[in-house]
Computed example of a mutant assay.
Amino acid sequence: MTTSLLLIVQIVLVIILVIAVLLQKSSSIGLGAYSGSNESVFGAKGPNSFLAKATFTIGFLFVLNTITLGYMYSKAAQSSVVDEVVENTNVAAPTLPTMPAKETNSSK
């Protein structure tokens, strides 16, 4: 139940994050901006705009949710369906019928 809810939250966060990134104004000329210009990722003054701060917050929530989902899925992968079935059933092992031992008469 909780993994399904976290997966839905993950999808919503991805959609919001993509929209937030696409709405931001481009401060440089694409990938050439990282080759040696004086601009930082968010400009010279840092992330001052609301959209940049919102993008950072949504990105942080996305990473946190990804780590949580990874932990929960790895924890679930360690258990097996067969283990759950065996734990939930209370079937006793079948017993073999015992034959009465023949009495031997050793006094003959």
Rank of each mutant, 00 (worst) to 15 (best):
A76F: 03
P94Q: 04
E39A: 13
A33C: 03
K102E: 04
K45F: 14
G46Y: 03
G30N: 03
K25D: 12
A76M: 09
A92N: 12
V41F: 14
L61T: 07
L64H: 03
Q24H: 01
V91T: 10
A92E: 12
F42K: 08
N88Y: 10
M99D: 06
S74L: 14
A101Y: 08
G70W: 01
Y73C: 08
S74T: 09
Y73M: 06
Y34N: 04
E39P: 00
G43L: 00
F62K: 02
K25Q: 09
T55E: 02
A101T: 07
V63T: 10
S28W: 15
S37C: 06
T95E: 08
L31E: 07
A92W: 07
E87C: 04
K53Q: 12
A54W: 11
Y71L: 15
E87Q: 13
G36L: 01
A77L: 00
L96Q: 10
S79H: 11
D83K: 08
G32H: 09
V85H: 03
L61M: 12
L51E: 10
G30Y: 01
G43C: 01
G43R: 01
N88F: 08
Q24P: 01
E87G: 06
S35G: 13
T89E: 03
P47T: 00
F62R: 04
K25F: 07
A52G: 04
P97C: 02
F42P: 09
A54R: 08
Y71I: 15
K45W: 13
N38L: 11
G36W: 03
S27Y: 12
G46E: 01
A52E: 15
L61A: 15
T55H: 05
N88T: 13
M99V: 08
M72D: 06
K75R: 11
A76H: 04
G32N: 07
T57W: 14
L64T: 13
K53G: 02
L61K: 04
G36T: 02
K53E: 05
S27R: 15
D83C: 05
S49I: 00
Y34W: 15
L61I: 02
I29K: 07
Y71S: 06
T98G: 03
A101V: 09
S40A: 15
M99N: 07
S80Q: 05
S26C: 10
F62S: 08
Q78G: 13
T66P: 00
T57H: 07
F56E: 11
A33L: 05
F56Y: 13
L64P: 00
S37Q: 09
V86M: 11
V63N: 06
F56W: 12
T89V: 08
L31K: 05
E84L: 13
